[in-house]
Computed example of a mutant assay.
Amino acid sequence: MVAIEITAATIKIGDQLVVGGQPYTVCDMSALASGGKLLHFAGGESFHMGCFTVLWASRHISQLPGFITPRARRYEGTRHQRTTRERR
């Protein structure tokens, strides 16, 4: 989890917000005509986020744009380090 700055345009379902000292996880949201979002939380609460509202949220790192999960090396088991200088 990393802390990121979010707006109504960048918020995603699953983001965790702290509003009034209470942590909330976004489970659903609705777009509003004004450009904002109506966020619905797991506990049944809702929050109107205006189009210019900026908040901090926690997001799983795998959801960040451009993040590619690291793959295991294909030939990792066959690699070895030279312990002595080899002559050719």
Rank of each mutant, 00 (worst) to 15 (best):
M1H: 14
M1G: 13
M1P: 14
V2H: 02
V2N: 06
A3P: 00
I4A: 02
I4C: 03
I4M: 02
I4K: 03
I6W: 03
I6S: 01
T7D: 01
A9H: 07
A9N: 14
T10H: 00
I11E: 00
I11F: 03
K12N: 07
K12F: 03
I13W: 02
I13F: 03
G14R: 00
G14P: 03
D15R: 05
D15F: 10
Q16K: 14
Q16Y: 04
Q16V: 15
Q16S: 11
Q16L: 12
L17F: 14
L17R: 11
V18F: 07
V18Q: 11
V19S: 01
G20L: 08
G20K: 12
G20N: 13
G21Y: 02
G21Q: 01
G21D: 01
Q22P: 00
P23C: 00
P23A: 09
Y24Q: 04
V26N: 07
V26F: 08
C27Q: 04
D28N: 12
D28Y: 10
D28G: 10
M29C: 06
S30Q: 13
A31F: 05
A31E: 10
L32D: 05
A33G: 01
A33D: 06
A33N: 07
S34T: 12
G35L: 02
G36V: 02
G36C: 01
G36D: 00
L38S: 05
L38D: 08
L38E: 05
L39S: 03
H40R: 12
H40K: 14
A42R: 10
A42C: 07
G43V: 13
G44C: 11
G44A: 07
E45F: 09
E45Q: 15
E45D: 15
S46R: 14
F47E: 00
H48G: 00
H48K: 10
H48A: 04
H48I: 04
M49P: 06
M49E: 01
M49I: 03
M49L: 14
G50F: 02
G50T: 02
C51E: 08
F52S: 13
F52W: 11
T53G: 01
T53M: 07
L55A: 04
L55C: 02
S58R: 15
S58V: 14
R59K: 06
R59P: 10
H60K: 11
I61T: 13
I61N: 05
S62W: 05
S62E: 12
Q63H: 14
L64T: 11
L64D: 08
L64P: 09
P65C: 02
P65V: 15
P65L: 01
G66M: 02
F67E: 04
I68Q: 13
T69R: 09
T69A: 15
T69P: 09
T69N: 09
R71Y: 05
R71F: 10
A72C: 04
R74M: 13
R74L: 15
Y75F: 15
Y75P: 02
E76Q: 15
E76D: 15
E76T: 08
G77F: 13
G77I: 09
G77P: 05
T78W: 11
R79A: 11
Q81G: 13
R82V: 05
R82Q: 12
R82D: 07
R82W: 08
T83Y: 06
E86W: 06
R87F: 05
R88E: 08
R88Y: 06
